[in-house]
Amino acid sequence: MAYLYRFDVSIGEKNVIAVIYADDDEGAFQHLDVELEKFYLKEPDVNEITLREKKRIVKKSGFILDEDEKGW
């Protein structure tokens, strides 16, 4: 069973929302590191990563990313 994970990533002074596909929580955190390294030219100064929610991956799954209406 795979899941879609929603993270809050605190980088320097800003917060980024990240969505990761993985089989388990630990794998999701590990792959988030990979994606962060791939995305930013310079290795980001990550203060904190928060796993907020996970959803089962069926044929369709997703999250809405809205700064003002985060749904929690």
């Binding site: 955190f29 904190e48 928060t50 796993l51 907020r52 929610e53 996970k54 749904g71 929690w72």
Partner: peptide, 28 residues
């Protein structure tokens, strides 16, 4: 333990909603 609130978090005097956090030292 998640936003789905099976424990009826919304009607509590004090609701506690869980999440996993990894800090700067990569402690989970």
């Amino acid at each position: 333990g998640c936003p789905n609130s099976c424990g009826q978090r919304q009607i509590a005097d004090i609701g506690l909603q869980g999440m996993k956090v990894r800090n700067k030292e990569k402690q989970m």
